[in-house]
Design a binder for these strands. Structure first.
Length: 310
DNA sequence: CTCCAGGGATGAT
DNA sequence: ATCATCCATGGA
């Protein structure tokens, strides 16, 4: 077999690409919605891993072009089987929800590996998404396994066993800060078998949340993220600072004290059986349309020196 | 420079 | 039960 070498044309006919029909799916939007943090842009597509397999994924219209994992694994990872129209139709009918639903067309909640998702969200506390991505990259590059896809190298997320044999100090060198202690402790629990994340998949929502919250560095918010993004609990409704603002402004206008408990009770009953999807749409819409966003630069290169204050 | 981020754990009211 | 404080770090 001839090994493929060097670079090929930018838009070349699918040679090695597997073509997958993906209607009602927006790859870029899904990967940029703050649920997964390791996919990197690469010419007109994204490079990353699905579990332990390297992958390169591009989208043209309703077609997905994939190098790496099998079609079945790709369809499962990106949750192409979720009945998105049905899910969106189950959302409550109010202005904020309608706007978010229109904005987030094709955004799907994907099925992430349990440990990878849990570990990443332990690192997410009081961190901006840009920095979570940086932490994920550092952990992968230092402790993950390099894998080649086409002419790129991507890294798998390190197993709990691998992280358990590092040290809190080494983890801190990945800019984890105080989160290093929690990640290390949780990694040791998972690696020792004292906790088995796969077996937890058969627990009820309440039991699963309880178990997750026993882990160091996991509270209600992170537990709900892991339930939603790694355990297919589509009713789980994580409330972070963004969602808290949205809920207060859109559903509790000019109230003095809206307690977290009140917000939790409201979100659990109001948004229906797929509340997690509703939450993700509200989150992504709020984050992407916030006036405090995307004014990173006007030119292509900043001016390092020109009469600066000194 | 200041402000803030997909929070959690702990201890005091 | 709610509130206050601390925890590290870096992007905007």
């Amino acid at each position: 077999m001839p090994l493929l070498t060097s670079s090929r044309g930018l838009l070349d006919p699918p040679m090695k690409f597997t073509e997958i029909s993906a209607p009602d799916f927006d790859l870029a939007k899904t990967l940029d919605s703050g649920q997964v943090f390791h996919w990197e842009k690469c010419d007109a597509g994204f490079a990353g891993t699905i579990g332990t397999e390297p992958a390169c994924v591009k989208q043209r219209g309703n077609e997905l072009f994939v190098i790496g994992p099998s079609m079945q694994k790709v369809r499962r990872y990106f949750a192409l089987d979720h009945p998105l129209a049905e899910i969106c139709a189950s959302f409550p009918d109010d202005p904020a929800m309608r706007e978010a639903r229109d904005y987030c067309n094709g955004l799907r909640i994907i099925r992430q590996p349990r440990w990878e998702c849990l570990a990443t969200f332990i690192c997410s506390s009081m961190k901006q998404i840009a920095h979570i991505r940086q932490i994920s990259r550092a952990l992968r590059q230092r402790f993950g396994a390099p894998k080649k896809v086409v002419d790129l190298v991507v890294h798998t997320f390190p197993s709990s066993e691998r992280l358990a044999e590092t040290s809190e100090k080494e983890l801190r060198e990945c800019a984890l800060g105080y989160r290093a202690k929690n990640l290390f402790a949780t990694a040791r629990l998972a690696a020792s078998g004292e906790v088995n994340l796969e077996k937890w998949s058969k627990l009820s929502d309440v039991e699963l949340r309880e178990k997750l919250c026993e882990l160091p560095g996991v509270g209600g918010k992170v537990a709900n993220c892991v339930m939603l993004f790694a355990y297919e609990r589509l009713g789980a409704f994580p409330i972070d600072v963004w969602i808290e603002r949205v809920l207060k402004e859109e559903y509790f206008p000019r109230k003095r004290k809206v307690t977290p408990q009140r917000l939790r009770a409201f979100s659990a009953s109001y948004f229906g059986p797929h509340g997690g999807y509703a939450q993700q749409y509200l989150f992504h819409h709020a984050r992407k349309t916030s006036p405090r966003k995307q004014q990173h630069s006007s030119g292509k290169s900043g001016q390092p020196l020109s009469a600066g204050p000194n």
